[in-house]
Simulated assay, not measured.
Amino acid sequence: MRRSRAISLCAALVFSGAALADSPRRVVTMNHCADQYALLLAAPGQVVSVSHIAVDPLLSSMTEEAADVPRNRGGAEEIYRLEPDLVLASTWSDPLAVGMLERLGIRVERIDGVDRLEDIPGRLREVGALLGREAVAEKMAAETERRLAGLPAPAGDRPEAAFFHAGGYSLGEGTLAHDILTRAGFDNLADRVGRTDGGYIPVETLVMNTPDLLITSGAYPGSSQAEALMRHPAIADVPRVESSAVWGCGLPATLDAVEELIGLREGFGD
């Protein structure tokens, strides 16, 4: 081996070893989006605790990966006892718990989901860098960018859809769900009735505006009046599809939801 090449190889090994040593070894997540990004990108054993929501199939798409990982409820005391060298929280995490951890010298980074499909690759790279898993994140981000670029531009008529989750909760412009829907070639009824972000739409509004499709959420075992509203007899005949956990945070699998909706929209022309 040439001397220059041997020196370069040794330097690369030293650099990679230093990078590995600098990577956090005990990562705790306390937010369901942070859970999913970390479980997706982390090295085996790197994540030592996830939030209790990580195993909720209605909110998390990484339940299998989270099944054997200890869970926490976001309390500062329980997280501190885990001796983490990195905690992934969000802007919605309990500010008292986050502040206490930071005062105790624990590094806390706030990781949220995304509101636009185009932001998914950047979030993957951000979390990958925090975990010292840049190469894994870059590969995943590049593949996500390729899939985004390959999504067909909607052509023809745009059916109108409405989000109608438990209690009549709907989603409008400024949310990832809205971006998924409109990227797939649907119009969002929330735009027409003046709803942005999250808010409630009465059943009467759906009856008067007759959307072509309802997008409902999953329901927990048992029954509740809020969830029963999604099955109101006045809207029983409206076609519907149930959203899944991949709609919530912005993951590579979120593009599966877009592609499924594209296929569904094309069926409206049959």
Rank of each mutant, 00 (worst) to 15 (best):
S8T: 09
G222S: 09
M30V: 05
V207M: 02
S61G: 07
K139D: 08
I215N: 13
M100G: 13
P70H: 11
A236S: 04
Q225W: 00
A228V: 12
V98P: 14
A67S: 01
G218K: 13
D237S: 01
A141T: 04
L101M: 11
G168E: 15
A67L: 08
P239L: 05
R107K: 12
A12C: 13
W247E: 07
I262A: 15
D68G: 14
V28T: 05
D115F: 12
L181S: 13
S49H: 07
D212Y: 10
L176W: 15
Q225P: 11
V55Y: 10
I79V: 06
T196H: 08
G74P: 00
P121S: 05
F164K: 03
V207K: 03
L189V: 03
Y37R: 10
F163Y: 09
L176R: 12
G113P: 04
D56P: 01
I111N: 05
A137P: 05
L101N: 15
S51D: 04
E260D: 15
T254C: 03
E126G: 12
E260P: 13
E160T: 04
S49R: 07
S23V: 13
V14H: 10
M1Q: 15
G267Y: 11
L86C: 07
H178W: 10
D94K: 00
G105E: 03
D85R: 09
S244N: 14
S49Q: 06
G17P: 10
S16T: 07
P44M: 02
A12M: 12
T63I: 06
C10S: 07
L59A: 01
V114R: 02
V207A: 12
E173A: 11
S217I: 10
V127A: 01
G174P: 08
R147Q: 06
V48K: 04
S16Q: 09
R147Y: 02
P24N: 03
G222N: 12
G194W: 08
S224D: 07
D157Y: 08
D112W: 03
D197T: 14
S243I: 15
A155S: 14
D85F: 06
A142S: 15
L148E: 07
N188R: 05
G150F: 11
P70D: 04
V27G: 02
E143H: 10
L59N: 10
A177S: 13
A21F: 11
T254S: 03
G74H: 12
